[in-house]
Structures are given as C-alpha cells and as structure tokens.
Design a protein around this nucleic acid. Structure first.
Lengths: 334, 334
DNA sequence: CTGTTAGCGCTTTCAG
DNA sequence: CTGAAAGCGCTAACAG
C-alpha cells in the first residue's frame, strides 16, 4: 500500500470512468446496481478512503468550525467547548481550537489564521477587553459566518447566544435582601462587557423592588484578576457603610474575595456573605463557597451557538437576519 | 470582491505565467527583481491570499495537528492543551480538538475522523480504560505520526512524553513516613494505567527505605469516579490497622476522599492526612487541601510532545527510532 | 445508465 | 529569467 488508492485507480481496474465510480460510491440513483456493487466491493477491498483535502478544495468547504475563546482552564469555557464539539461532531464537523488568553492581539491573529485555514464558520467568545471588532468584520468579507457566545460584542448585526445576567442578578440580590442584607457590594467586571452592565441593571432592579436607593460606590468594576479583586474588596470594605454581602463576578472572583475577607479577620457567613456566578463544580471544592451562584449554562450556550452556525452553513437559516438567543440566567442556591 | 483573487488573476493582469507569479510570491531567487516587485505590489493591492486548501491538497499537508484527550474540564488537560497550542502555533500549525470523554469507543471514532481530515500528526492522551491500541496502529499505516503524552499506552515502539510517578510517589510517601505515619492508604487508579503501577512502585520504594513491609490491602485500585473513591475509602478505613494518611490519585480524588472522611466524623489533618497528585490550582480553593501534591507538568508535557511531533513532521527526527521523554514528577509541599 | 471534459488553485518539472 | 504544461483527487455539467 504505497499510495492510498484513488477513485481513478478503481476506475481503471474496472474499466469505468472516474465519474461513474464517484457516483457509484455516493449511491447516485442513476447508476446500475451491478456496477455500483462492483465499485463498492472493490473500494472496500482496496480500503479506499476519499481524500478529504481534495474534496475540501473542490467543494470550497472544510467541515471545520473554528473556536476562539479566552481560556480553556476556566471551567465555564471547557464546559462550553464540550457543547460545541458534541454538536459539531453530530453533523460531521470538526473543531479547530484557538485560545485568545484574553488578549485582543492574539484574538486577532487567531481570527486571521482561522480564515487562512478556511474554516467554514467561527464560534467566538471575546477576550475580556476587546472593543475593536474589525477582525470579525473582516471575516464577513470572506463569507465566514460568526456566531458569538457568552462574551459577545456590543453590536446588533451579529448572531449570538448569551445569558442575560439581569434575571440572575435580580434573583441573587433579592436573595440577599430577603436575608436582611442592606448594604450589598458588587464586584463587577470590566465595563466593556455587556454582562457587566446587565449585572448592574439587575442589581438596581432588585434594590428598586425593595425600595432601596442605588449607591454607585458599592458597584466596583474590576479586571477579574486576583489583584483587581483584592482592590475591589478593599474599596468595598472601606465604604462609609458596612458591607455585609458581596455579589462576586464569578466563582473564581468569589474565591479571591473570600480570601481577602478572611485576611481582614472577617467571618464568612457571619460578618459577610457571598453570592456569585457560574455555578462551577469548583465551588463544591471550596472551603467557603458562595451561598448561591448564578447558572450560565455553558454547555447549552455552546450547543445553541453551534446549532445556529450550522444552520447558517446549511442555508436553513436566512443570512440576512441575525439570530439573537438569550437564555435567562438562574440563581442556584446551594 | 466577488471571488477572492487567485494567482491566475494576478498572472493575467500582468501578462505573466501563473508559475512566474507563484515564484515571485515565494521570493524565488531566479525571478527578476522588477517582476517580483510588480507581482507583490499587485498581490497586496488585490489583497491576494493564497488558498490554503489548494495548497494542503497539493502538498498533501494540512498544517494541522489532531489532539485526542480525555476531558478538557480536567485542569490537567486544559493546561496541557495550552502547551500544545502555543507550541504548534509557533510553527504555524493549528490544533484540531477531540475529547474522548474517557470512552474508548469515542476515542476510536475520533482517531478515524482525524485521519479522514488528514491531520499531519496526532497528540494523544489515552482514555482511562483503553487497552486496545488498534486504532493507533491504523494511523501508522497512513503515515500519521502519533506522540502520546501523560496517559500513554504500555508499548515501547511509540513516541511519548510522560511523567514518572515513581519519584513523586516516593517523595510523597516519604513525607508521610517522616511525619510519623505508619499505615498509609493509597487510592490508586485503574491497573491499566502505567501511572498506577508506577505509583505502586514508588510507594513500595518508600516503605522499603524505611524498612517497612508492603501491605497490598492498603493499595486500592479505583476507577477515579466519586463513587469509586468512596468505596476505596470505605475499604481503607475498615482495614485491620488504622489508616492515618491517604495518598490520593489526584486532587479531585483527594477532594472526594476528604468529603467521605468528614462524613465519617474524622478530622482532617488530625485523624487523617492527605497528599495527592496534580498540584492543580483548584487545591488553593479547597477547604481541606492535601498537605502536598505531586506536580505533573501538564503544560510542559504538552509542549514537549508537540515539539517531538513537529520534529517528526519536519524530518529532523529519524522516524525509525522512538522518542521517550520521561519527566520526573516532584512533590510540592504547600 | 455511463463517458467525456473541464476545472477547483497551486506547485513543479521541463523547456526555452 | 520566464513560460507551458501537467497533475494533485475529486465532482459536476454536458453529452450521449
């Protein structure tokens, strides 16, 4: 078996045209049963395997979806990618991976490479401080559809799947209010993220319902690093009023915040209470897990986003209208 | 810009042969400076981009590496994949992802799809109960080199990168012995895994050094599930002798084991002490982290494995000899 | 029902 | 220094 057998090889041996062989292999209706059988038998015997790179080239399709996301070591994204992979595989698509590591430059570079590799479509969750979307607009020019998920750009003429953080935040803050907390700090994410602004809105809604006034000094934008979290905590704990509860951006941030609180001699659950987002399995390992966490359905988001992308690719979905799927986040009390 | 510009297009406009354009673009030495400049200028102007699928087809290379690993949501593997991705990208290779979810059947299927997609090479970490390696032998037939990492098959005629668990285990058990523990339980992995057997050896070595006798009933093979861990713990805690320390297969297992111990009313760090493997960031979140954890260098393993694969692909590495890179695991005391 | 022909975009002999 | 021509493996339009 020097060179893998081709369709030509089969044709020659059977004295047929390559086109006939191709059709027979594809069970084309207008091919005689006899020849079809012959061809398929020989193909099996020679262990013929179509050369996909030839097909990709010829059909201008690679059956490959590119994924750009910030960081697989964040449990949210590793769950999301499973949803993506499972859904893609069901339709015989493969997944090309690219981590931006939350760096816009890298994100751009990956977008270009993905384009060069001629992925059929792209699934993207933005790096946390990406505000320039030119590298995605570029993709439109190449007719490569993009579906964003979770960390989506602030644009309307795009396809996306996301979780609305308002509902979950409303529930989270309400829970704290019902437990009697009156001064609730919020460690929010970078302002660039839509999700950060939604958290603010949800927070405000909850206060309004309870006829309490919103105090902007209790809502801190942080960069989600350990350092940023500590600074946010420092600010919150030095607020004029005594903060008794914290809404942390996610379970990792919550963990860092807890750490800081402990260092300040606070007792978790007594002096200060935490809720957060993501509802990651990691919280079951934590010494002081948040009392509740807002579920963001990573697997589902990945799945939905991929379904939309596949519809776009198979033309089931009109390309001129933009799909916006918004899941409601939901508080999970432990 | 209906259809992306091709080399042909450029040739026509400049009244050149496509071959000349191709050469000019590649800075072929025997092309006149003038024409080279002309071509490159026009290429830039038209925003020419080579059609990689054509090149892949023609060169029989896809500049794509396939990755098959058990589960990205395990921190070890998400770290490893970063090492892989970074190294691959440096050489302009992309990464096709496939998770086996620790299921041999899925692993086989993915191996076939990867072959169909004509990946240039494959990086593999085995599903936990894979014992039949026929799907990897199949790849050799197609001249697709495979480099295994971490969870490697028990074969010698393969390339691999792995961590030797003996050294780390020796250190871990020694630490416990030095702290005065005399009855040390071990929650080991499935027997199929080489790493499980290495742990056993390391454990025995440590005992021997301290002139203690090995007791097989203290070394339990488990399936690494939560349930399996609980059963292993139950067995260990009902041993004739009183177990005062546990060596857990990894930080996740350690966590489950701690949970069980707590339920049995044991005090962690007093009645019973834990050490484990992986040294994952997650342990910093844990309520009762192991007092030490054996580092297994996921990023480095991914990096090394990829380097070897790339050498194989660029022919720098003789294909007839097999590369075995073994890193020594090392105990990290918290 | 099957064959002929052309072509996808690029590289690479072989000629000149 | 440049051109002509072939070919990678496959599909598809067009003929019969």
């Amino acid at each position: 078996m020097a060179n893998p057998p081709t369709i030509k090889e089969i044709a020659k041996r059977l004295n047929l045209a390559t086109s006939t062989v191709s059709r027979a292999l594809h069970n084309h209706p207008r091919i005689g049963l006899r020849t079809r059988m012959q061809v398929q038998a020989l193909a099996r015997e020679l262990q013929y395997e179509p050369n996909r790179t030839a097909i990709f080239f010829q059909q201008k399709k690679t059956f490959t979806l590119g994924i750009i996301l910030p960081e697989l070591s964040e449990a949210f994204f590793s769950a999301a990618i499973s949803g993506i992979e499972d859904t893609a595989n069901k339709s015989d698509y493969m997944v090309l991976l690219g981590q931006s590591h939350d760096d816009t430059e890298r994100e751009k570079k990956i977008a270009h490479i993905m384009k060069d590799h001629r992925v059929d479509g792209l699934l993207v969750s933005l790096a946390k401080n990406t505000v320039d979307y030119s590298h995605f607009e570029m993709l439109q020019k190449y007719n490569i559809p993009v579906v964003f998920f979770d960390r989506i750009p602030d644009l309307t003429d795009i396809h996306y799947v996301a979780c609305n953080m308002e509902s979950g935040t409303l529930q989270a803050v309400s829970l704290l209010l019902e437990k009697g907390h009156r001064v609730i700090g919020m460690i929010n994410g970078p302002e660039e993220l839509i999700a950060s602004r939604q958290r603010t809105t949800g927070y405000q809604q909850a206060l309004r319902k309870h006829r309490l006034k919103y105090d902007a000094t209790l809502n801190i934008n942080s960069d989600l690093t350990g350092k940023g979290t500590r600074e946010a905590m420092k600010q919150l704990l030095s607020n004029k009023r005594k903060v008794t509860a914290i809404v942390a951006f996610n379970d990792y941030v919550s963990q860092d915040a807890v750490q800081y609180a402990l260092e300040q001699g606070l007792q978790i659950g007594k002096d200060i209470t935490f809720v957060s987002y993501a509802n990651l399995p990691l919280s079951s390992y934590m010494a002081f897990p948040p009392i509740a966490s807002v579920e963001q359905y990573p697997y589902l988001q990945g799945q939905k986003a991929t379904e939309i992308l596949l519809e776009l690719l198979t033309g089931k979905q009109a390309k001129n209208e933009f799909r916006h799927v918004v899941l409601d986040s939901r508080l999970v009390i432990r």
